[in-house]
Each structure stands twice: as C-alpha cells, then as structure tokens.
Simulated scan of single mutants.
Amino acid sequence: MANSDTWLFQIRITVSPEAAAILRGDPQCMHPALRDVLRRHDASLTCQFDAFSDYVNEAERLGPEKYPLYQWTRETIENPEKKARYLRSFTVYVDGDEVYPREIADLLQTELSALAGAAGIERVVKFDSNPANNPQPPKREA
C-alpha cells in the first residue's frame, strides 16, 4: 500500500460572491496579495463551475459515452444550489497541473489561508489524490 508521500495534492479555495465575480470576469483585478501568492508559485485559479461546463460541452461535442462523469456533471451545473456553490469554488493549478507534491500544496495552503477575509477567501482546503479519500466515477455498465 502506498504511503501518503506518494499522493499528489490539490488546493481549492472558496471565495465570496464578489471575489468570484472578479476572478471569473477579470482575474487581473484580483486582490494584490492573492496575485502575489499565485505568481510566486507559478499558479493560477480555475473556477470549478467553468471547468465543469467545459467538461460537459466537450462531452456533448465528442460523445458523452466517453465521459464517465458526464451525467453527474451536467446535473450538477444545472442545479441552481450547486451552481451557486461551484461558481465560488476555485482550483489552484501549479505550472498548469491540477495536482502537485505535498510541499507545494502545504505552502499554498498556508499562504492562501493567511489571506482569508482580506482577499475574499472564505475557505482553503487541501485534497489528496488517494482514491480512498475521493469520490470515484460511477462504474460504467458494459
């Protein structure tokens, strides 16, 4: 069994509705301290709602049967309550990657948590890539 050092990690932040509107609309207008943290780590933010919408659009263009999470994702973005939540949730990408080593994730978590409140950040969460800790795609029927 792999130990926790073999897993990769991801940081997600939840921001205020006002901060979400800025980050989705004109990321250059984000809080300067947030911009500094991201720049220091060659990191960027992706709105989870936008990522889900892109996934659904791609699946519909290329064939939903090739996308195991298509139905769940489509239902999620069409649900007003979930849409509101995911519009405020952003994934931190580092060097273009959505998962990265623990050391980077720990630094980002610490630095972003220090900005809570001032930069519109309400919550900072670290996830790992261990399948036992994360929901898995539904099994596809043959």
Results as ranks from 00 to 15, higher is better:
S4V: 06
D5H: 10
D5Y: 06
T6G: 06
W7C: 02
F9I: 03
F9M: 07
Q10Y: 08
I11F: 10
I13T: 04
I13E: 04
T14K: 12
T14F: 07
V15F: 05
E18R: 09
A19S: 12
A21E: 15
G25F: 00
D26N: 15
M30G: 08
L34R: 12
L34F: 09
R35P: 00
R35F: 06
D36F: 03
V37T: 09
H41T: 07
T46G: 04
T46H: 09
Q48T: 02
D50M: 05
A51H: 14
A51I: 01
A51P: 01
F52D: 15
F52A: 12
S53Q: 13
S53W: 10
A59L: 02
R61K: 15
G63T: 13
Y67C: 05
P68E: 13
Y70A: 07
W72K: 13
W72V: 05
T73C: 09
T73Q: 08
R74L: 11
E75C: 00
T76F: 01
E78H: 13
N79Q: 08
N79K: 04
E81V: 06
E81S: 08
A84C: 00
Y86V: 00
Y86W: 14
L87T: 06
R88W: 02
V92G: 00
V92Q: 07
V92S: 02
Y93K: 12
Y93Q: 11
Y93F: 07
V94W: 09
G96T: 03
G96C: 03
D97A: 12
E98C: 00
E98A: 02
P101A: 13
R102S: 12
E103D: 15
E103I: 00
E103W: 04
E103M: 00
D106Y: 04
L108R: 07
Q109A: 11
Q109V: 03
S113V: 03
S113D: 15
A114C: 01
A114R: 10
A114Y: 09
A116I: 03
A116Y: 01
G117W: 06
A119T: 01
A119F: 05
G120C: 09
G120Q: 08
I121L: 04
E122Q: 10
E122Y: 01
V125R: 10
K126Y: 04
F127G: 05
D128L: 03
S129C: 07
N130W: 11
P131I: 03
A132Q: 15
N133R: 11
N134A: 09
P135A: 14
Q136K: 11
P137V: 03
P138E: 10
K139F: 10
K139Q: 15
R140H: 14
E141Y: 13
A142W: 13
